[in-house]
Amino acid sequence: MTAPAETPTARLVVHRTGREEASRYEVPYTPGQSVLDGLRYVRANLDPSLAIRHSCINANTCKECMIRIDGTVGYACTARLEPREMELRPLPNKTGLRDLVTEIGPPDERLDHAVARSGGGGRED
């Protein structure tokens, strides 16, 4: 294997909820990295306004990072970053909150549900 002349990059085209135009980012590529690694690089180095949802980063246990990657739904933390252009979009069938983040919490674990319950009677003093 010969070493590449230039450091290869992954070019992320991110379609963001609430914005007409996609944002384009170029991130350094190292083999084995995940798409989430790339997005976290973007936030820390290029554009902190980019919203992506995740908790666990590596373990693939929180299941929060699901997005569309080149048209296919998958976890950003297990999909590999590749040294080419990659298209990222939020999940198609969920309400978009911001950028790549969609509403994924179960309805009965959202704030309005708690408000409804809190209002409806409680313990008598």
Partner: peptide, 18 residues
């Protein structure tokens, strides 16, 4: 009566699940 609040998804966001 208990309110169980989490900054992310309930039961999936901290060390326990990992």
């Amino acid at each position: 009566r208990v309110l169980l609040a989490d900054r992310s998804l309930v039961g999936r966001s901290g060390a326990t699940v990992m």
